[in-house]
Amino acid sequence: MDLTLKIWRQAGPTVKGKFEQYSISGISTDSSFLEMMDVLNEELIGKGEEPVAFDHDCREGICGMCSLYINGRPHGPDGGITTCQLHMRKFKDGETITIEPWRAKPFPVIKDLIIDRSALDAIIQSGGYISVNTGGVPDANAIPIAREDAELAMDAAACIGCGACVAACKNASAMLFVSAKVSQFALLPQGKTEAKDRVRTMVAKMDELGFGNCTNTYACEVECPKEIKVTNIARMNRHFLGAKVSG
């Protein structure tokens, strides 16, 4: 298939970026989106131009490294997948594809389509864990956990930290990401000890980093490659309110 690509090129964090247009032909419909980008880059190198920089790693939808805002959607026009799992058969021959980096104040562009998502790490580092040291923990079966709770915790824990929720949100809010981690631990007995502090510090860090506020549009849920539900956001709101009220 033949395609026209409009790709955001930006030499560095402080440089102004702009769209460049590329034509590419002979792309197999069986190739993945990132393989199409590989082909483009090989062509650019052959022509002595600089290849397009983009983040990617596992190419099987689990590491959360790939991003890309493709024709107005994070991870492109297919549901429940990451960009590396997107295939070219989802596009039409002759189509123009616009590829942008994810845009949010806390996600500055590093180069071209590569963005800095360390803000998400900063939120986890503020309290997104259970404070146990190695060793000295009870037997794994000492505390039974209701299967339903374990399953709900797993649903939330499936988050790959890609930031598509932030990219999709009209407010660049990180609520789905934060609430997934808060929910995972709030649902498990091991996480309850620090639950109040955790929700308070993580929300404070999220605000401090300049993410937007949630307006319950739920674009995050629509675009999340792991289909994490906004019920996690409600759970976080509930726990936050509880932590406020009980002091």
């Binding site: 107005g72 806390p106 009209k170 739920y218």
Partner: peptide, 28 residues
């Protein structure tokens, strides 16, 4: 809240996203 939300994305997308589950939330 709205001003903070605008500030959270100083550079807009060329093609704005249209995903939602509550359409009018975009126009509050």
């Amino acid at each position: 809240l709205q001003i903070q939300n605008w500030m959270a994305r100083p550079d807009r997308y060329k093609i704005e996203g249209w995903s939602h589950k509550s359409p009018f939330s975009k126009f509050m």
